[in-house]
């Protein structure tokens, strides 16, 4: 074959070079400039920070043993100096349990979303980029999953897989094996929405001029998918991943509340609510605190998601 490094040198010296006046503005900085314009998103981020601090930092104040320690003589005590959030039916400290329950909820939210995002991206990208029968096949499958109500799927799968999954050790903590079941089924039932979003993005981006330029150059298909198109879908992916965390937390609470989710003694905000079910009027503290925490975290994540939606919009050129 021919030459490898031809590199002609310019003799157009006369051309004056354009300088940019403005200091460099990376995409991250640009996004932050836009994000901080949303007061609610900033508030949401602060609240989210506090909640994470509460769940993680709290773990250093109370031990998990303490959170699971029961003393029936202390049962159903209202909030007091010794037990700020009161105690539950078998005398466990609710404050400590919301801390450890929060850890589980966050963990479930994050891992379920990792699953969701991976599945959503793969299905959406393949369908959107290749189109034709690949698209047809994958989208019909996605729709099939969308048609079945997620809650119904969740309940059936939770019941079905609830069997004897052994406890596991992760991050230095013991978890009931049901946590994994919950994560997997939430992940596997949530991806269709994301897949559709990713597909739509791919469909429009693959026709864009910078992709044509890459194809004219001879860039390989995997590079086009992963280096060119995917980074441009980051906005909707990040936004739906953020909202997906909130969704997963609510779903976990929901199935745990119905008694099909994470098994005691591992605390989650959802199964704490379940425990409070019979005491709605007599012991408000049992449901109030986990309930508020769920509300706060879901709200905070939604506000952050809204801010990110604008901040990451690749089509917006304005600061």
């Amino acid at each position: 074959m021919t030459e490898t490094s031809p590199a002609p040198v310019s003799n157009i010296a006369a051309l004056p070079l354009d300088q940019l006046d403005a200091p460099p503005l990376t995409l991250g900085r640009l996004a932050w400039l836009r994000f901080r314009r949303h007061k609610m998103a900033l508030a949401g981020m602060a609240l989210l920070g506090l909640l994470i601090l509460y769940c993680v930092g709290g773990g250093f104040v109370f031990s998990e043993k303490y959170a699971n320690y029961n003393d029936t003589s202390l049962a159903l005590q209202p909030p007091s100096a010794a037990h700020w959030f009161g105690t539950d039916t078998i005398g466990r400290d609710i404050l400590a349990r919301t801390i450890y329950g929060g850890q589980i909820s966050l963990l479930i939210g994050l891992t379920a979303v990792i699953l969701e995002v991976s599945a959503g991206i793969v299905v959406g990208a393949l369908a959107g980029y290749f189109g034709g029968w690949v698209d047809n096949l994958l989208m019909r499958f996605t729709e099939a999953i969308l048609i079945i109500p997620q809650i119904f799927l969740l309940l059936v799968m939770a019941k079905f897989f609830a069997g004897d999954i052994p406890d596991i050790n992760f991050l230095g903590r013991e978890f009931s094996g049901s946590v994994i079941v919950i994560v997997v089924i939430i992940g596997l039932t949530s991806w269709p929405y994301l897949a559709r979003i990713v597909r739509a993005e791919f469909l429009s981006l693959k026709e864009s001029e910078f992709i044509l330029a890459a194809r004219a150059t001879g860039t390989s298909t995997p590079e086009i998918i992963f280096l060119h198109i995917l980074p441009n879908c980051i906005a909707p992916i990040v936004v739906s991943a953020t909202l997906g965390v909130a969704n997963a937390i609510t779903l976990e609470a929901y199935i745990s509340f119905l008694g099909l989710g994470v098994r005691p003694p591992t605390a989650t905000w959802g199964n704490m609510l379940e425990g409070a079910y019979n005491y709605i009027e007599s012991a408000y503290w049992m449901w109030l605190f986990p309930g508020l925490l769920i509300l706060f975290i879901v709200l905070a994540i939604n506000f952050v998601g809204d801010g990110l939606r604008d901040a990451l919009d690749p089509r917006s050129r304005a600061v």
């Binding site: 864009s208 910078f210 330029a213 390989s220």
Partner: peptide, 27 residues
Amino acid sequence: FQDPYASLNPRWTVNSIIAEPLRVHRL
């Protein structure tokens, strides 16, 4: 291309954009 906004990948630096053909063709 015609559209100077649509024809450059907004997530790439100028360096990666211009170097792409060099990289792809191992020049």
